[in-house]
Design a protein around this nucleic acid. Structure first.
Lengths: 163, 163
DNA sequence: CAACGCTTGACAGTATACTGATAATCAGCA
DNA sequence: TGCTGATTATCAGTATACTGTCAAGCGTTG
């Protein structure tokens, strides 16, 4: 029976590339003296850029599942990097804000994150890296709605007030 | 503080693309009436192509961690798709073989797997898909040793005997 | 042969991801 | 106002992945 070789399967290559990306991130972060996962870093950065954001909106910004974000936020809060407090406007929602220590961590780990992004494409030229990112963005855009955790932009401020 | 946009981060794009790839696989497999994960499929196919393979070699063939493969093999065996029996030559090793039902499943699910591979790059032309796979292969080759579960080829038969 | 290092498989513990369900709450509408 | 449907956060359960550790078995070497 004929089967496509693993190396011709986009799915296998996707898994493999992600596997390496995570390993590289961990290595760089640890070398810099930080104990943050790639997932936690993305969440922390998004909270820093959007103070008071609720969990569902945060999940949409970085394309996490809403059940996954619960654990990620838990761990960030436990490390003292963020704070979670009930919203006054909507008692269901928790407003997330970064703490001073969170800001310090975010700033300190940024060079390591940058190094990781470059390390995971070490085999490619700058031009090839641009091509790869362009193709990935295009494929992802076409498949965005296929996963349970699609990427969502920030809702317009006007929408919140008006609607 | 400046931070790279998510869409410029290879790591974020890698995670996102893999997320979509897994979702597409599940959707196609379920639509075809099968309950196999992408990881289980790859393991089953590799066992089918290499009867009597041990778990460590199998893990190397598909780039899984050796602790991850334990659970995958457990679930495949529990579903009756493979068999695990002690090796006569090396009592540490378990020889893995596919069962008739496993072969039937593998054959039956193949069209769905093929459909999934095409669906996850639905936004790209055939040429772009080739480019994407080429770039991924190149990046992966350069980073292969960076993860705990690098890809390993089958050991040469001669090596086993001679060594 | 006996001691050593290495390999194979497995386990505990942690961290994503997802499915499906639920309580609490909100918002629109009869 | 009271009902209904949607939304927010959470939980239970399953499946990757990885860290670190361990017992059993293998092979080489002194």
């Amino acid at each position: 029976m004929w089967v496509r070789d693993n190396n011709d399967m986009p799915g296998h290559l996707a898994r493999r590339f992600q596997q390496i990306a995570v390993a590289v991130f961990h290595a760089e972060a640890e070398a810099a003296g930080y104990d943050l996962t790639p997932v936690q870093y993305a969440a922390l950065a998004a909270i820093s850029a959007n103070p008071g954001i609720d969990q569902v909106t945060l999940a949409g910004l970085i394309a996490y599942d809403r059940t996954t974000i619960t654990g990620v936020v838990d761990r960030l809060a436990q490390k003292g990097l963020i704070e979670r407090q009930a919203s006054s406007r909507d008692r269901r929602a928790r407003e997330l804000t970064i703490t001073p220590e969170g800001s310090k961590t975010l700033e300190g780990i940024t060079p390591a994150v940058e190094a990781a992004q470059q390390s995971m494409v070490r085999g490619l030229t700058a031009e090839e890296t641009d091509d790869l990112m362009r193709l990935l963005r295009k494929a992802i855009a076409a498949g965005n709605e296929l996963s349970r955790a699609p990427l969502r932009g920030m809702p317009m401020e006007n929408d919140r007030k008006t609607s």
